[in-house]
Amino acid sequence: MQLLHNRISKRELKARLFAETVPRITVSLYKYFTITDPKAFRDEVYLKFSELNVFGRIYIAHEGINAQISVPENNFGTFKETLYGLSPELNGIRLNIAIDDDGKSFWVLKCKVRPKIVADGITDPSFDASNVGQYLKADEVNRMIGREDTLFVDMRNHYEYEVGHFENALEIPSNTFREQLPMAAEMLKEHKDKKIVMYCTGGIRCEKASAYLRHKGFPNLFHVEGGVIEYVRRAREQNLPLKFVGKNFVFDGRMGERITDDVIAKCHQCGAPCDNHTNCNNDGCHLLFIQCDGCRSKYEGCCSDACMEEHHLPAEEQQARRSGRIGLARSYRAE
């Protein structure tokens, strides 16, 4: 019988990953297309990718597929053939290759069926996700940025924008995409006469956001093809000046890709220049925050004195304190 889920402990999986000698390639991909039977498609994807030792996170829904994964370098060609063969809609799909990659981004394959591949909160049946804005390539992005008739809009979460963004881009201050969409429509209504360029990490959110704003009557919409990842890759290949400053947050174990040397954020505890995200070591918290090396040592990877104290308690007492308590925060996750 073929297994359709992982049965190995997290500790063993991590040990296996760090014992590997074959380099890995971290890649993200997405595609909006109709999947009639997401469960059957999910099982096929899981089985085929497991055979190729692919790790990562894959979401499948009626509206398509969204994946952030790592692939052994020696299996990459076979992986692409397998991916392209899953559906005609996936044949030749763009793959966003990680910019700053140590190959240790994932240690297990998780493949899940979800209502949508990116949670958007849209319930209007007349919404057409395929009616998107115009794609912009790297050179086109550079030509448009800074123009008075153009507004760049960041469709990522606040903690992503905090460590890196396009020059003078407008932040939609939110921690979830579903909150951002109506907020963006409201914030941008006085700019309907401008060209609005939307961007995100790999393209999946800004593509849907452009369709949402079209649905709301915005006429001049664009989005960066392949998001920040593809923009930076193409800009470097073409020796173009980088208009994205700082670090690009990513939803895996790396938590970020260094784009430029600029550090535009600060440690949340001492205020020193820093753009390194971490999750609080206290199992009852796991707050995602920015912490410098000095504060990491001082607070032992925790976000506060209270969390550091709780982190040192016996496991039974930690569980007793957490029982019935609303979580202090959440770990990062792709939304």
Rank of each mutant, 00 (worst) to 15 (best):
Q2F: 02
L3K: 12
E12R: 12
A19E: 10
T21A: 08
I25E: 08
V27D: 06
Y32M: 10
D37S: 11
D37P: 01
A40F: 05
D43R: 04
Y46P: 00
S50I: 11
F55C: 06
Y59T: 05
N66Q: 09
E73P: 00
T82V: 08
G85K: 01
L86T: 11
E89F: 00
N91A: 02
R94D: 04
R94K: 11
L95D: 01
A98T: 07
D100K: 01
D100F: 06
D102C: 06
G103R: 14
V108W: 03
L109Y: 00
V118A: 09
V118Q: 10
D120R: 12
G121K: 07
I122W: 09
I122Q: 00
S126W: 07
S130H: 09
N131E: 06
D139N: 14
V141H: 00
R143E: 08
M144K: 09
L151Q: 09
L151A: 14
F152E: 09
D154K: 01
N157K: 01
H158I: 01
E167K: 13
I172H: 11
P173A: 09
S174N: 13
T176G: 04
L181H: 01
M183G: 06
M183R: 12
E186R: 14
D193S: 07
G203W: 01
G203Y: 02
C206S: 13
C206A: 10
A211N: 08
H215P: 13
N220I: 02
N220V: 00
F222M: 03
V224N: 07
G226E: 04
Q238M: 11
L240P: 07
F244L: 07
F244W: 04
V245W: 01
G246Y: 03
G253E: 12
G256L: 11
E257S: 07
I259M: 08
I264S: 04
A265Y: 06
C267L: 04
Q269R: 12
G271W: 09
A272F: 08
C274P: 00
N281I: 09
L287A: 05
L287S: 04
F289W: 13
Q291V: 15
C292W: 11
G294E: 15
Y299R: 05
C303V: 11
S304F: 13
S304N: 09
E310T: 03
E310S: 09
H311P: 00
H312A: 04
L313W: 13
P314N: 01
A315Q: 14
Q318T: 02
A320N: 10
A320W: 08
R321T: 02
R321Q: 14
A329L: 01
R330I: 06
